[in-house]
Write a protein that binds this DNA or RNA. Structure first.
Lengths: 227, 227
DNA sequence: ACTGTGATTCTTACGACGTAAGAAAGTCAA
DNA sequence: TTGACTTTCTTACGTCGTAAGAATCACAGT
């Protein structure tokens, strides 16, 4: 209901009033629209309707649609990335980071295809990085390795989130991933066997184990000579 | 029809000849076009022009543009994924897989934003997976863990490739990543210090270390209880 | 109250895109 | 030569991002 939405965010005013929108308002509305109707449903016209405004109005707050997309990716990341907790041991801290970031990103699955092709380097995000760097440095990591670790985790989380969404856009399909079920057991015996025993097909477990593997890998290499 | 195959290269022919295109030909031309001019330059009309044909002609070989994109992603992955070498120790095999896949993907940077939102589960790819499963199973991995490992590596490689391309679309900028240079040292002391010493900023090293970390993480967890 | 000024919004229009519908042109067996 | 089938082209529609500029509104200064 675009009219109600407009009335709520812009105050109860008669039509034709020029209260002034906000870049933030626009970004939030765009993100909400993508979350609700999917990325393809976000057009300048539909977003305008959502805000109770003509499409061209948006261009007074955002130079181009691409900039709008950058904005919502940035916003989604800022919302998603959890801050470092210095009270935890570093392994736990990184683990929380990975799971928190994953959950945060999965709240906005529509932006994931965008996230893959956009920077999203926000001050808020960098604050977060700085915090995790502090945790790792305190644990004895050379700065180079610490940066490597944070980056690797972030990249993996983003990759996993993207893969999880494209395989399972809200699938009720419990157990094995759908496509494995139709494979020729003669050609792919091990794959089919793994799927049949339900091994290696649970997405959450897959993610958790990989994160653990990454972190213990950091642990082995972490206190070595700095890169 | 082996002769027709050769005749299908629409080399020097008068206009209006109906030799017959191929789905493969179209996919290859599309991939080449994306590699050369970027993803945005791929339109049905431009691809038609590339093939010496009107846009609508393509629809006789491909039902929709989305299917075309699926096709070129699939093709790029097939070209990129290296087969398993059973003669190597499994750690080496996985390491080669990761580096080979990365290089292969970076040969077609334009498709990376697509790869993030498309399945790309090809028989060829599954052959590859089956091969690596065999290597890991022979090394004593439970099938579940083996699948986890392959999946985690693949996801990480894809994520890293995407990030590397978006940060550096053919940048000559050696050393630190560009955006770190302009940070406020008061706000981000550790980040700036890491960048100043050149630590943690080399993309290749970053990738290599993360892959090693993942693999040694698998090694720790690999022979534990499956599943 | 009036007016001018600047900020905000709307109207109109253009070119490019994906693609539906069906006509045209070519190929080939009989 | 014919007639059926395949491949290609022509035309057209609706939607997209957005350029250009007119219209509307809030408000400071008189």
């Amino acid at each position: 209901m675009p009219a109600a939405e407009a009335a709520r965010s812009r105050g109860s005013r008669g039509p034709g009033q020029k209260v002034g929108l906000t870049r933030q308002q626009i970004l939030d509305a765009a993100l909400a629209l993508v979350d609700r109707d999917g990325l393809a449903a976000l057009t300048m016209r539909s977003l305008g309707a959502e805000l109770g405004v003509e499409a061209m109005t948006i261009y007074h707050y955002v130079p181009t649609k691409d900039a709008l997309l950058d904005g919502i990716v940035e916003r989604a990341f800022t919302l998603a990335a959890p801050p470092a907790d210095p009270a935890q041991p570093w392994q736990r801290s990184l683990n929380d980071y990975a799971h928190g970031l994953l959950n945060g990103l999965l709240n906005h699955p529509g932006i994931l295809p965008l996230a893959s092709s956009r920077p999203a380097v926000t001050p808020d995000l960098l604050d977060g990085v700085e915090g995790y760097l502090r945790v790792l440095a305190a644990a004895g990591f050379p700065l180079g390795r610490a940066l490597h670790a944070i980056n690797a985790l972030t990249v993996f989380v983003l990759g996993h989130a993207t893969a999880a969404v494209r395989i399972d856009p809200a699938a009720e399909d419990v157990g094995a991933a759908a496509w494995v079920a139709e494979l020729d057991p003669e050609r792919y015996p091990l794959l089919v066997e793994a799927a049949a025993t339900g091994q290696g097909t649970d997405d959450d477990e897959r993610f958790a184990l990989a994160v653990e593997a990454l972190i213990s890998g950091f642990e082995l290499a972490g206190s070595g000579a700095g890169g």
